[in-house]
Design a binder for these strands. Sequence first.
DNA 1: TGTTAGCACTCTCTTTAGTCGAGTGCTAAA
DNA 2: TTTAGCACTCGACTAAAGAGAGTGCTAACA
Lengths: 343, 343
Amino acid sequence: MGLGDRQLKILQAIIKDFITTAEPIGSRTLAKKYDLGISSATIRNEMADLEELGYLEQPHTSSGRIPSDKGYRLYVDHLMKNGTNPQKQKNEIKKKFIKSVGEIEQIIENTAKFISETTKLTSIVLSPQLKQGKLKYVKLVSIDSNVILLIVVSETGIVKNTIIRVDEDYTFNDLEIISRIIDFKLKGIRICDITAFIIENMYEEVIKYSAIVKKIFPALMNALEEMVSIELYLEGLTNIFDLPEYHNIDRARNFMTLLDQKEYLIDLLLSSKEELDITIGKENKHLEMKNCSLITATYQYNGFIVGKIGVIGPTRMDYSYTTSVVRSITRTLSEILNEDKRK
Amino acid sequence: MGLGDRQLKILQAIIKDFITTAEPIGSRTLAKKYDLGISSATIRNEMADLEELGYLEQPHTSSGRIPSDKGYRLYVDHLMKNGTNPQKQKNEIKKKFIKSVGEIEQIIENTAKFISETTKLTSIVLSPQLKQGKLKYVKLVSIDSNVILLIVVSETGIVKNTIIRVDEDYTFNDLEIISRIIDFKLKGIRICDITAFIIENMYEEVIKYSAIVKKIFPALMNALEEMVSIELYLEGLTNIFDLPEYHNIDRARNFMTLLDQKEYLIDLLLSSKEELDITIGKENKHLEMKNCSLITATYQYNGFIVGKIGVIGPTRMDYSYTTSVVRSITRTLSEILNEDKRK
DNA sequence: TGTTAGCACTCTCTTTAGTCGAGTGCTAAA
DNA sequence: TTTAGCACTCGACTAAAGAGAGTGCTAACA
């Protein structure tokens, strides 16, 4: 490497300028705008060097320079000062959350909204992955003679219930016994470890009480499956219209169409295991993401790693500010979720 | 009125053409394309008359004509043949639905997806309004010494539950008694009729058993409130990018921003009580909707009127096809929801 | 009298050419 | 090593010209 001090300063100035203007910048304007103490000609020479080294790009001969992905990478890894995130904002974040009483879903949705509002970008939040969580409680409740309610509760406090309609006769006592057996057998097992095998095993044991288990077991499987399924909250999609890079219809369309694919987004967020990860432009695998950057972070729920937060924006995004927001939000979110637990 | 037969034919041809091409059409092309048996000059004269009567518009002198809102209205009310909706499609619809086992939310979401896919427009589906529904069942279940689960079930089979964390001591017996009293008092009452008054009344009666009711009652209120809240499913937003009228960024942005406002959409759909309602262009109250048309329909759940379906597209949409799709979907949806009940 | 052919005219859209301006690379002087 | 100067480049903008689709009006025709 060995970029000179002056080159770094120039690179930084270019990035800073491009982040706000989205326009290529030339040596003369750079010299005028930023007090670098050197003439435009010198800057010109340095710029040529920086381009040769791959930190800058030139959209066409005789236009200004813009930062390359490599340039952003250098900036993010070494040049960027960690954005100051005043206490003020943190309090505001909390307040915002506190509004949503109880429900985790609400908290997560609000988190996504808050991120997209403060960063003016598109945010994605993945609900906690409960695969690792243990089952806490299973219960069957008779609603009336042909409706049974199945309740499944995870250790982390997620509740799933299913209405089961049955034609078969059953007694309250049968139901209670079945309920207890299932609860006893599954309690404390990690949800991802509850295989069809375990359930089938139980089936044998329980079928003698009543034929309704034929309806109950599929419902149970279903409830467990839903329990570990990941919910995705996407907010601030329309924010991209404010960015000059999306004034082109096709770009906007591609972006939106891409973000419409839930599975893709889940995959995208889960592929990084880091606590905070920045993927810049072409570092992204997917073609449509080549001119986007993605910041992902991991939040904790109940001690073990679980949820994901992501922000998608143009490579030209304000990395310093955005990462500081993301970092602060994950911290606050983890705090709130664990507080909630302790209560 | 008194539009001649020939004028109606011309109007119909223009509308038909404009629906597919989105381009103003002139007398010559109209004469060539559609075998009307009259010359372009005659068409020209008739077009001038139709314009004077307000059924056509001319974007600029010396361009072709396009239908006006009034023209569409005439078309929708009198000219449009009810689109044939082959049995084939109906079966396909059903199949699509049947995939989603059980959960009403799933069925509704799939409905929205299906509509937007078949019409290539943006669809909105409102979940059933449960205000009119009666409460069927309330139960408190002890999960562990400081966690209680509150379950509320409506007659229509919607379940809401809330985890309540308590520090106060309580016995299983207390909990059971409280649970029974609440259930007894509220069972059979329409959810919208359960006022704070009723609940407070009950509070007095129940507080003697344990202090935990202080936590239970707010949770109950909350659960009831959530129960009657309307969910909204929006699908096919990105479809508008395929429409030439939204190749203009600002239009696309306005459209998306408008549809981002849940409250507005709910209001929009609920403001029509008809079984099937078509609102064309300027008939819409909201400025941003002046160049859109909206088709809304009502579906039934459990006998009484409850849910809403909507399709939003440009005034140039294929009314015949779209209404037939919407009509058929509402019918199928009502059927499925009631079948589900009977099971 | 309604219908049609013909024609001059209108207006948008596209293409072409010309100009402007921001920027570059290179050379030579400080 | 830095800087001033200069010729050159290339996209963006503007103006003019031409094409194409359409109109309204007039006059002829069945």
